[in-house]
Amino acid sequence: MDVKLGVLAGDTRAVARAITWVENGDPRGAEVIRGVYGSTGRAYIVGVTGSPGAGKSTLVSRLAALLAARGQKVGILAVDPSSPFSGGAILGDRVRMFDVALTRDVYIRSMATRGSLGGLNRATRMAARILDAAGFDWIFVETVGAGQSEVDVHDVAYTTAVVMAPGMGDDIQAMKAGIMEIGDLFIINKADRDGADRTATQVESVLQLSMTTGWNPPVLKVSAEQNTGIESVVDTIERHRTHLVASGKLDALKIRMAKLDVLEILKARLADTMKQQLDQPAVQAELEKVASKQSDPYSLADIIFEESWRNT
């Protein structure tokens, strides 16, 4: 199987394998990205974040089903946490997505965080590039859903949707700091339950306090379980997309994405190089000095940094 050609042809196995490679940091993953990057840039990437239990997976599967019915190809990257103890994970988002699992033109990939803290996996960004190159029109990135620190999705997606459920009003105050600022739209899911209006009002009142720059984030009430309001979500995403294009923000975003793509690679490479340096036998004696307080960590870091810079 030629994975690169497979990705460009939209072959499921090739796409799946390429994502595995970038997830594992396999050099072949980098090769694939080099080979297909020129074919990216067409997909529209939507981030979906929000508290656990808000119903993100069900909502994403409904959105995918609706778009697929309109003849669109939809890729979903669903991230779940890895166990900090074993490094293993149980990726359960699929269970809520089985309705679309067999829908043609919908691809779902479960990813574990593998130690990342911002709600995504380090490879999520590159996995999105692979789906993009494979011809997916839409890519949904669903975050872990652990709460306020999950703002990374904003660096991956053009449009970020924040999902909430009624009765989570207390969370809104806590979320204000981070997640309220990244939302381009807010979705009150499970709107058939008590308290939906109250939660919507709370969100709206928080939003009124924030600065707007030509786009006022709408607050939508939907029920993913009962499949109501899903069209309004798609319409709003489309409107936001139009807004980004018309205002020239999309081009700016794309440059930002390119920068972040490079940054991600640099960070990974630098981390690898530095770690190799740290493992050098010569460094061990220096580490012992730091441990016995004859030296300090900053001074040793300076030496290692300059050393590896000279070597590259």
Binding site: A89, L91, V95, F98, S110, A112
Partner: peptide, 20 residues
Amino acid sequence: AFMDAGMEVIYTGIRRTPEQ
């Protein structure tokens, strides 16, 4: 158990077809 052994596990839920 697979998770505790460091593996990444995807669970399908019950009543799945061979095709799925």
